[in-house]
């Protein structure tokens, strides 16, 4: 991983479940079909409560924020891989949350879709949607541009190797399954 991700953040709270990330009525879309995958992206996070900011503008397929900041238990609920897929299709590169539900975390890692980072600091109370940040994937640091503050990201452990390989298939080819 030798890159940096710069862009705006979209800030969410605790327990963002998979029905909010991609509501069940869109699960008939097939992630392996490129057109339908794009559509899944356009519905990313449309299940947020009705007074929330929209993640994707009307008529768009991609979000203006490639980074999500969230609280605890991000991605709880169903096993639908449509959830990290829709975020990936909408242009999300990484999430920084306090914690994840395990299936969402595994899906993101094993499909090589996005980096589910954790930060021991509760960032979602300190930051606002639309603010610019820079994430250094090498140094595992995260700079909040409005304040100039630098935060550390926790290591992803073994999961990082899997994402770096591009997912479980490549990982298994490289390291075997014993």
């Amino acid at each position: 991983m030798s890159d940096k991700v710069t862009g705006k953040i979209f800030v969410l709270g605790d327990n963002i479940d998979t029905d909010q990330i991609i509501p069940a009525q869109y699960l008939n879309l097939l992630p392996t079909d490129p057109e339908e995958r794009k559509k899944l992206g356009s519905y990313a996070l449309v299940g947020l409560p009705k007074n929330s900011l929209s993640f994707i503008e009307e008529g768009q397929y991609e979000a203006s924020c490639p980074i999500i900041i969230a609280g605890k238990n991000f991605g709880c609920g169903s096993s639908r891989e449509h959830a990290p897929i829709s975020l990936n299709a909408a242009g999300v590169r990484l999430i920084i949350a306090e914690s994840y539900s395990r299936i969402f975390f595994r899906n993101s890692v094993n499909a090589g879709l996005l980096y589910p980072f954790t930060s021991s600091k509760r960032l979602c109370d300190e930051m606002k949607t639309g603010e610019e940040v820079e994430v250094d994937l090498d140094a595992k640091t995260f700079t909040h541009k409005p304040s100039g503050k630098v935060y550390h990201l926790d290591s992803l452990g073994d999961a990082e190797t899997i994402i770096q390989c591009g997912g479980i298939f490549e990982y298994a080819k490289k390291y075997g399954t014993n």
Binding site: P31, R80, E81, P84, I103, A111, G167, I168, F169
Partner: peptide, 14 residues
């Protein structure tokens, strides 16, 4: 336990 499509696709073969 529950898993996603990628993991299940992997199991189907492996």
């Amino acid at each position: 336990t529950g898993i996603g499509n990628t993991e299940a696709g992997f199991i189907m073969g492996a």
